Amino acid sequence: MADFKIRKECPPQLCDCERERLLGGEQAELAILRLNLTEEKRLLAHIETIATYEQLKKLEKNLQKNLGVVLRIAPGSGEVRTVRGFQIQLLEQPGLCRKTRAAIPAAVRRCLARHPEIAFAILDEHDLLGRIGRSD
């Protein structure tokens, strides 16, 4: 069994995390279960303290490396006027609780609302601001 505290079981009717299926699987798959409630609260607090685009990119890489979780942040298909115009999501995977898939993007949105320069960097990364200065 695991030598770390794992996330408690969710009520079966309320969550689709497939925690029990993971417990019977390989050790590599168990990494996501390390995100217990205490660790999730620490992660959410950390996300809300992010102040630069580089820190946000580092968070994305660390989530992937340590937990196997893919965080995607991109401008929405329409016009982006506020942080609600960004598509922020955690890709579904076994062991990732439904509440966590909602809480982490919400924390990222709060971070972007506090630091609009990060939102502008995301827009620039997707070349939405780069086209303004060019004449094609």
Score class of each variant (00 low, 15 high):
residue 8 K to M: 14
residue 77 S to N: 08
residue 128 L to I: 10
residue 3 D to Y: 12
residue 59 L to D: 04
residue 36 N to E: 12
residue 117 E to G: 07
residue 97 C to H: 14
residue 132 I to V: 14
residue 30 L to E: 06
residue 45 A to N: 06
residue 93 Q to K: 15
residue 125 E to S: 14
residue 46 H to Q: 09
residue 8 K to H: 15
residue 92 E to S: 10
residue 17 C to E: 15
residue 97 C to Y: 03
residue 53 Y to D: 03
residue 6 I to P: 13
residue 78 G to Y: 06
residue 51 A to M: 03
residue 62 N to E: 12
residue 48 E to P: 02
residue 127 D to P: 02
residue 47 I to R: 01
residue 130 G to L: 05
residue 88 I to D: 04
residue 75 P to N: 05
residue 113 A to P: 03
residue 64 Q to F: 08
residue 78 G to P: 02
residue 133 G to P: 00
residue 102 A to E: 11
residue 58 K to C: 03
residue 129 L to M: 12
residue 79 E to H: 08
residue 16 D to T: 15
residue 114 R to H: 11
residue 18 E to D: 15
residue 44 L to E: 01
residue 34 R to W: 09
residue 118 I to D: 07
residue 56 L to D: 01
residue 2 A to F: 05
residue 91 L to N: 05
residue 36 N to L: 05
residue 103 A to V: 00
residue 28 A to R: 15
residue 104 I to S: 09
residue 57 K to A: 03
residue 64 Q to Y: 12
residue 115 H to L: 07
residue 52 T to N: 10
residue 116 P to F: 04
residue 17 C to T: 13
residue 113 A to C: 05
residue 33 L to K: 04
residue 91 L to R: 05
residue 36 N to R: 06
residue 37 L to Y: 10
residue 100 T to Q: 01
residue 17 C to Y: 14
residue 123 L to D: 03
residue 24 G to Q: 10
residue 27 Q to A: 10
residue 82 T to A: 03
residue 40 E to P: 00
residue 96 L to V: 13
residue 119 A to S: 11
residue 51 A to S: 15
residue 59 L to E: 04
residue 102 A to P: 01
residue 71 L to N: 01
residue 71 L to C: 00
residue 102 A to K: 13
residue 89 Q to W: 07
residue 88 I to N: 02
residue 106 A to M: 08
residue 75 P to K: 02
residue 105 P to Y: 04
residue 64 Q to S: 10
residue 130 G to V: 02
residue 27 Q to C: 08
residue 14 L to T: 05
residue 68 G to M: 06
residue 77 S to Q: 04
residue 56 L to W: 01
residue 54 E to I: 07
residue 108 V to D: 05
residue 133 G to K: 00
residue 53 Y to V: 02
residue 113 A to K: 15
residue 23 L to N: 07
residue 62 N to Q: 10
residue 132 I to M: 12
residue 48 E to R: 11
residue 20 E to R: 11
residue 122 I to L: 12
